[in-house]
Amino acid sequence: MQLSFRATQRLYRALTAAVLVFAGIFALFPLVWTGLTSLKQNSDVITAEMQYLPHNPTLENYFELWSRKSFVTLFGNSVVITVLTVSLCLLVGTSAAYAFSRYRFTGRNAALVGFLLIRMFPMVLMLIPLFIIMRNLGLLNTRIGLALAYTTFLLPIATWMLKGFFDAIPPDLEDAARIDGATRAGAIVRVVLPLAAPGVAATAVLTAIAAWNEFLFALMFTTNEASQTWPVGLHLLVGEEFNLPWGLLSAGGIISILPIIVFFVLAQKSLVRGLMQGAVKG
């Protein structure tokens, strides 16, 4: 049976809407539950009878979290480390990705896979050698040290992703710029990067999320409370032999996605719109 063009379109639209609604619910339900839990006292979470909406909604958890321990310090550390990591990854990763994308040299494929080696090697054997390296370089307990450690582990991802995006930019665009008198470096800055902006933004988001949420390195490479990060602080809310403060933990989760939401709202107009809607649309 041949459906008319109209009918097909309608069917597609319905399917699309259904997929998006499902995706939205699946993605959001746990977050909504986290949000609801953050408004409950623990006695309203640990109940025999399920409480959907908080009976006694309270913002207490947020206030307590914020006044507690050094959560402001932790938050600040994480922000600085994330910004440093993303900057380093983009700077170094762009440069390497461009070389991988535009040049053919012996050992290129081996080098590409070699870049990934650092991610393939199980973390369990990395901890002690890395700790020793960090200690010898005097990088324990420093934000730049953690940012460097994150960068080395996120660089392969950033490089691979950026290479993919650079590959998609036709080289003749660059050539055109160079005929106009730009150097290769000039062409990268003026042509390649702007065209790859959505890809660069996607890479930035990816590295930012990874750096923002990293826990193990942050725990291992810090030895005083002043240098700990936000995920470590969140982790410390959960003790093995203590009641789990569900409300506090949920509030922590909500607080930790706030900066990213803010970032998205602020950047919506420039970077992220490009990232989400495709490179050069009209």
């Binding site: 986290t34 839990t37 949420n213």
Partner: peptide
Amino acid sequence: TLILMPWFMPSVVAGHMWALL
């Protein structure tokens, strides 16, 4: 924007919230 949120949640919170769910 919304579907990106699950990924933003720190794994310690996400893990425990799923344990709760």
